[in-house]
Design a protein around this nucleic acid. Sequence first.
DNA 1: GCCTTTTTGACCACTTTAGTCAATTGTATA
DNA 2: TATACAATTGACTAAAGTGGTCAAAAAGGC
Lengths: 197, 197
Amino acid sequence: MYEKFSRLKEDKRDRILNAALAEFGDRGYKNASTNNIVEAAGIAKGLLFHYFPTKKDLFIYLYDFCLMTLNDNLIGKAGELDNDLFARWIHITAIKKELTERYPDIFRFMTTASKEENKAVKGYTQNARLYLLATNKLYAQVDKSKFRDGLDAGRCLDIIFWTLKGLEERNSAPEDMKIYLDILRDLMYKESADEHN
Amino acid sequence: MYEKFSRLKEDKRDRILNAALAEFGDRGYKNASTNNIVEAAGIAKGLLFHYFPTKKDLFIYLYDFCLMTLNDNLIGKAGELDNDLFARWIHITAIKKELTERYPDIFRFMTTASKEENKAVKGYTQNARLYLLATNKLYAQVDKSKFRDGLDAGRCLDIIFWTLKGLEERNSAPEDMKIYLDILRDLMYKESADEHN
DNA sequence: GCCTTTTTGACCACTTTAGTCAATTGTATA
DNA sequence: TATACAATTGACTAAAGTGGTCAAAAAGGC
């Protein structure tokens, strides 16, 4: 299915994908406009419907594409990652950065899709929320022995997470993120596990 | 201006305000639909345009209304609040809860308005972002002497904030919130300031 | 030159948009 | 009860936007 589209030159294919991810991610299925998509992608109206018979087909294609891409690049790589929480975060952040460089709105699309209420497509996006959670579960099996005695490591992970989420929403620079992580590590790790410089 | 509207019975006035705050907050100025607003408010189309000559006038009225309301209830009260961070948070949370009980979408509207790009109204909403920051600055003059030496109190406040926000999104029970706050206080406060039980 | 594939954009029927206005209902005073 | 005035309705409009079509033009390969 959609061989014509997948055989497209990478540059043009990504332009269309990104235009559609941005529009659906911004406005949801119902309000997204195919006119806006073709304009942002720099192609004629007819061409979009040459690749995808309907708006709904385009949306479902995007959804499957994101699932596959996130799986190949993130969830599937859980085994290869460092067991130290902070090292793991640095690695995952690098992967996410690469992903968002090529597909700037892939996470926004998945977030919007996970909240999709339009019944024409709702059935297809049931797993989106689960999937986004899975990208967080990447941190589940992290080495908890480094936390100070008496500290609840699970709750500490929550606090670290919410901090990272807050920093992301604020669009902080990586150097800034590092400062916050250093504070948290100093507070939460045992002294002996604390020599990271 | 708009005396007719402000002399309305409280119940009806709030219904219209809330319907409009929700619609603009959800969809932004351009995509917000006056049809949706009148339907949600339970009034006829004509009545909305009896109170506000145009959609733009309605939007600007809402914006000024929010500025005023937030100022009267939050920013203006900074002086009366406790200097201890945790006590202050309890107080502010109570005020915010009252506000969102009466105007559920007031913060969402301001957040959306602060990102507004439509040039018909952009000039009027320049200060929205500043104002939202101001509601956070409420914690700026908190007693920072209680934090451990060498700790950046401002960044600690951010971390505490994001944790509280995460707990709110998770709908945690108050006892659960207290556990997280105790962890953070133990980690961040000096031992001497740490006797809170 | 010729055939196939890719690409265009004017066009269609339909929905939604902000805003209008003659007509109806409610309310207060006499 | 009659009168005046304000509050409220909702069918209506012109314009804009919608997803989708299709004949024709352009590009590519041989």
